[in-house]
Amino acid sequence: MTIILIRTVIVFFSITIALRLMGKRQLGELELSELVVAILISDLAANPLQDIGIPLLNGLLPIVVLLCCELLISGFIVKSATFRSLVCGRPSILVENGQISESEMRRNRFTLDELAEELRGQGITDIGKVKYAVLETDGTLSAILYPSAQPVTPAQLGIAADDPGYTVMIINDGRLLEKNLAIAGRDAVWLKAELERRGAAGPEEVYLMSVNSAGDVYYQAMEGKR
């Protein structure tokens, strides 16, 4: 039992490190090669956990090899458009100028039910409002509406929109993030004044505090201090 415990911890950290090295893309929408690696890693790594008669190396070595292969493939994908289209394929335009392409739907084995489902997921119930619908290489559907169906923007109404800028978290669960304080262009004097205004003795009494470029502050005190 101890062996399984130790192996599980080793495999867990190995997979975590491997996926971390592969980058954020591995955690988000997966391309084909990334999906293959994700499936293989989880399956291969489980073998030495289930059977202690199998050497642990038989589980860790494939992880290393898959990690290296994925890094090389993703590197080539960045460098070569041809290689990218070979490995990942090309996006398919399912709806063009409001017309559904039956040939593209057949080629991608995409049914009308699935098209309607994907559009509903994006809040679009009337397919007549869709000008373009593109099936991306990672399997997601991107829909672009006709201009008359798109939400109106402040620029179209001739309204000058306020730009709050980027909101930066200053205090996170009682911990002061000094680097973020500097990024927000604020200092300890400003922070002290803001905390005093809200009746807080220090950052440890604050659950969340954020500020944007316009100076708008979001503040929430810890429970029991409100």
Partner: peptide, 14 residues
């Protein structure tokens, strides 16, 4: 590029 070179080197090592 560094990451890819490191991956290639690791594969050779393996």
């Amino acid at each position: 590029m560094k990451r890819e070179l490191a991956a290639a080197a690791a594969l050779v090592l393996v």
